[in-house]
Amino acid sequence: MTFAYPLLFWLLPIVPIVWWAMYRRSRGEVVTMRFSDLGMLRGVKPSWRIRMRPLLISLRAAALGLLVVVLSRPQYAQSSERVVREGIDIQLALDISLSMKAGDFDPKDRITVAKEVIAEFIKGRKDDRIGLVVFSGNAFTQVPLTLDYDFLQTLLGQVQTVRRPDGTAIGTALAHSVNGLRNSTTKSKVVILLTDGSSNRGDIEPAQAAEIARALDVRVYTILVGKPGGGEYPVHDAWRDETYLIPAPTAEDEVALRDIAEQTGGIFFRAGDEQGLRDVYATIDKMERSQVASEKLVRYTEAWQPWAAGALLLLMLEILLRNTILRSIG
């Protein structure tokens, strides 16, 4: 229990002073009678009614004390905490060109590892809208920004490499991802672009796409996957019904991806194996966290009523006794 005006309790020491003043006054209001001889009254003791007279003063003083408590406004405080979380809008741009089938992430290929790591990244997010853009020689939205992580995971699991149009349109993919964030009202907008090659397709150059991202205040993290020297990926020849292993190109020129990250306030990463890629996404996950604020709410319930009822009851009892069994003469 709390009190709105606790300083009023300094009035409580006045109560015993008031009691003493009323007691002294009652002693001075004794009704007297004249007797020619007081000898016959020496053995007479005061009746219980006389001895109970100070009770009336005590009841009134106690009522006064309770009124002081009422004036201090006793209250019950109920506190609650409301957590406000501001999410981040994240676009995941995933390269699905044929070279992502390269098996240099032994025993898995690049696309399989990338999908598994991205799925784990999504599981670790909360209250963030996440979208998925896939690209090769062109780019398209697989999943628009959503909070439905189960739906996102389902469509991510269905992503496969494509043969046509082959190539790597990094600029187009970045511009397409940024366009999906154009109407975002969140303070933090992020693109995580994963590829294994250099930009060799598309109508938009990576530098142009980076300028668009910077203009819209979108931070871009770029990830280059694959071991130096690359691996091999299978290509099926439908005419001959044969499958060939073709050396996978590995982008040794990191300049474009570094420039994109630096221009937009992001970071460039390189991952040559599965653990390296997991570390990259773990780092981004720690850097891009939702802003959380807590707001404490306190609700007060007035509790003066029982104290007021007690004071009223004492006053009524005092009046009742004063006018009945403890009634004075004269």
Rank of each mutant, 00 (worst) to 15 (best):
T2Y: 11
F3Q: 00
P6R: 07
P6T: 05
L7C: 00
F9T: 08
W10Q: 06
W10K: 00
V15I: 09
I17K: 01
A21I: 12
A21E: 06
Y23R: 03
R24M: 08
S26L: 06
R27E: 12
R34A: 13
F35A: 13
F35H: 09
G39A: 06
R49K: 04
I50R: 01
R53Q: 11
L55S: 02
S58T: 09
L59K: 09
Q75V: 11
Q78K: 06
S79N: 08
R85W: 05
G87K: 02
D89N: 05
Q91R: 15
L92C: 10
A93Y: 02
I96R: 04
M100V: 00
K101H: 15
K101L: 15
D106I: 09
P107M: 07
K108N: 10
A114L: 08
I118C: 01
R129G: 13
S136G: 10
F140C: 03
Q142I: 08
T146G: 03
L147P: 07
L147D: 08
D150R: 14
L152S: 01
L155K: 11
G157K: 09
Q160E: 05
R163H: 04
R164V: 08
R164E: 09
T168W: 00
L174E: 03
G180Y: 14
L181S: 11
L181A: 09
L181E: 10
N183D: 15
S184V: 14
S184K: 06
T185V: 14
V190P: 08
V191N: 08
L193V: 14
L194V: 15
T195V: 08
D196M: 07
S198D: 10
S199L: 06
S199I: 04
N200Q: 12
R201F: 04
D203A: 10
P206R: 01
Q208C: 01
E211A: 10
I212L: 15
D217K: 01
R219Q: 07
V220C: 04
V220Q: 06
T222S: 02
T222V: 03
G226Y: 03
G226H: 05
V235A: 01
V235W: 03
W239C: 00
R240W: 09
T243C: 05
Y244P: 00
P249E: 12
T250G: 07
A251S: 10
E252M: 12
V255R: 13
G265K: 12
G266C: 11
G266E: 05
I267Y: 13
I267K: 13
A271V: 14
A271D: 12
D273F: 14
L277P: 05
D279N: 15
S294P: 05
K296F: 08
Y300M: 09
T301E: 12
E302L: 11
P306K: 00
L312Y: 10
L312I: 11
L312P: 14
L315V: 15
L315F: 08
M316E: 06
L320K: 06
L326W: 05
